[in-house]
Simulated scan of single mutants.
Amino acid sequence: MTTLLLLRACRRPNIAATYTNGYLRASTPNGTPDRRLASTEAAAASVQLANSGDLVGFWQTLSNSTPVAYMQDALIQIHDYSNLPWWSSIVLSTFLFRGVITLPLTIYQQKITARIERIALEMPALVEELKREAAMARQKFKWSDKETSIVYRRSIKKQWQNLIVRDNCHPMKTIIVLWGQIPLWIFQSVALRNLVYMLPDPTTLQAQITATEMTIGGFGWIPNLTVVDSSYILPVTLGLLNLGIIELQAMTRTRPPTRLQNIANHVFRGLSVVMVPVACTVPSALCVYWVASSTFGLAQNMLLLSPEVRRAVGIPKTQTELSQPYDQIWLKIQQKVKLAPPPADKPTTK
């Protein structure tokens, strides 16, 4: 540990350049090569081999891209300043980045969704008025049914666009979270992979120090973050968390799902299952990040269900908002596991 602290101080460019050659040629007092350094050189050689084969084209470009480089620097800075082990530093950086980027975007997205829902309530009255105007124009100008229908549809579209402009809630803004969350997930995943495999340059002292620190920066059953989680605990946890996010969204939906929503749910469930074997093949550092990110996502979704929290962050109240969301979730869970009777069908009126 003392050696790592000393080497960490060499991360500064002016010092790192001085000690690079000496670090690679270091040996033990009896003249035999240091096994740790030999393994580092072997890892560097394997990474260079991978660079010539697997990491080509798009993936190599992404690994060497500027956003990934900035993310690597940010992860190292957070680790150094926090003085936490690498697994805790990864969790801290994940919560920090998602709290700064994806949480505000999610709140903004839900504000837009609520505004759209509220202006949709104004449309029925406008539709009835437009129907009367279209009927009057048809008689006055002797329009055909086709001409009347065209004018009527154009008028509805224009009124809807006017409402959207008035409340500044274009439907395309509802996917704004994806524009922040997906790049963040990709860049941080690739950055962590680079740190584990000492990319893009395995010969630099900083890359070697970080990779060495990760070999002892784990916890519990995974002390080495550069190897896979052979216990499968983290991969299975990742799959359960992702499924939990999908089921939470399904259980809190107040309207019957559309066909497209059902298809999307099945697709995301399949992706959640597929991520489990993928997580079984990547270094544990990536698994820690993915689990931390999914944990934040699940907690964020649970928090933003609370009416009190929604009012506090400025999300307008809507008719579909759940007044007691956590009670409904618990009831739905009980119904799924057969601990509570299914909801009774509404009586039909004759």
Score class of each variant (00 low, 15 high):
Thr2Trp: 09
Leu4Glu: 05
Leu4Ala: 08
Arg12Asn: 08
Asn14Asp: 11
Arg35Lys: 11
Leu37Tyr: 01
Ser39Trp: 11
Ser39Ala: 14
Ala42Lys: 10
Asn51Asp: 13
Gln60Met: 06
Pro67Gly: 07
Ala74Met: 15
Leu92Pro: 12
Thr94Trp: 06
Phe95Met: 10
Leu96Ala: 11
Phe97Tyr: 08
Val100Ile: 15
Ile101Lys: 06
Leu105Glu: 05
Leu105Gln: 11
Thr106Met: 10
Tyr108His: 13
Gln109Gly: 02
Ala114Val: 09
Arg118Gln: 13
Arg118Val: 07
Pro124Val: 06
Glu128Lys: 14
Ala137Ile: 04
Gln139Thr: 13
Asp145Asn: 13
Lys146Asp: 12
Glu147His: 10
Glu147Phe: 02
Trp160Thr: 11
Leu163Ala: 06
Met172Cys: 08
Thr174Gly: 13
Ile175Met: 15
Trp179Met: 15
Pro183Ser: 03
Phe187Glu: 02
Ala191Asn: 04
Ala191Lys: 07
Leu195Trp: 06
Leu195Asp: 06
Gly217Lys: 09
Leu238Met: 11
Leu240Glu: 00
Leu240Phe: 12
Leu243Tyr: 03
Glu247Tyr: 14
Arg255Gly: 00
Arg255Leu: 13
Thr258Asn: 05
Arg259Leu: 15
Pro277Ala: 04
Leu286Val: 14
Cys287Arg: 01
Phe296Gln: 05
Gly297Tyr: 07
Ala299Asn: 01
Gln300Thr: 06
Asn301His: 13
Arg310His: 07
Thr320Asp: 10
Ser323Asp: 13
Tyr326Val: 05
Ile329Ser: 01
Ile333Cys: 08
Ile333Leu: 14
Val337Asp: 00
Val337Met: 08
Thr348Tyr: 02
